[in-house]
Computed example of a mutant assay.
Amino acid sequence: MERGKINFFEKMATRITAWTGSSMAFGVAFGIILVWGITGPIFGYSDTWQLVINTGTTIVTFLMVFLIQKSQNKDSKAIQLKLNELIAASRFASNRMVDIEDLSETELDVLRRFYQKLAEMSEADNDIHTSHSIDAAQRLHKHKKGVVSGLTNGDTGSQE
C-alpha cells in the first residue's frame, strides 16, 4: 500500500473516532433516533420504517468496530512504546519487561503471579523504600539454591 493511502486512512480514522466520541456526535445520533421515533406514526410503524433504522445502525456499528479497533491499536502501541522508554530509562527497572506484550497468555500469567508475590513482599516490609525486582529476586534465588546445594553436600551453610 502507498504511504499516502495509509496516512489518509489513519488520519480519517483518527478524526472520525475523535468526532464520534464527542457530545456533538451523541446529539446527532440522538436526534436521528428522535426523528425516526416521531415519524413512526406517520409511516404506520411499517416494516420499511423499522428496516431503515435497523439497517442504518447495523452499517454504522459495523464500520465503527474497525475504526475503533484501529484507533485502539495505535493508542496501545504508543502506550507500549512509552512504557518501554520508561523501563529502558530507569536503571532499577528490569529490561526484561520491554515488549512483554508479545508473550503468550500463560507466560503473562506467570509474570503476574511473580508481581503479586513482589506486592506481598512489599506490603510485608516496614520500609516503603525497599525495592524488589525480578533481577534481585533471581540473584536471591540463585544464592538460596547454592546454599541449599551446599547443605545437601555436607556444607554447614556458614558464609565466608
Rank of each mutant, 00 (worst) to 15 (best):
K5Y: 05
F8S: 06
E10H: 15
K11L: 01
K11H: 07
M12V: 09
T14I: 01
I16S: 00
A18S: 10
W19T: 01
W19V: 08
G21S: 10
G21C: 04
S22D: 10
S23D: 11
S23R: 06
V28C: 11
F30P: 02
F30A: 15
G31R: 07
I32C: 02
W36L: 01
W36D: 04
T39S: 04
G40T: 04
G40N: 07
G40E: 05
I42S: 10
I42T: 05
Y45L: 10
D47Y: 08
Q50I: 13
L51P: 05
L51N: 08
T55L: 04
T55G: 06
T57S: 11
V65F: 01
K74I: 00
K74M: 09
D75T: 14
S76N: 01
L86K: 04
A88E: 07
A89K: 15
N95R: 12
L103G: 08
D109H: 12
V110L: 03
V110T: 06
R112A: 10
R113V: 02
Q116M: 05
S122L: 06
D125M: 01
N126T: 06
D127N: 11
S131R: 12
S133W: 15
I134D: 00
A137T: 06
A137M: 14
H141A: 14
H141K: 07
K145F: 10
G146H: 13
S149Y: 07
G150D: 03
N153I: 08
G157L: 12
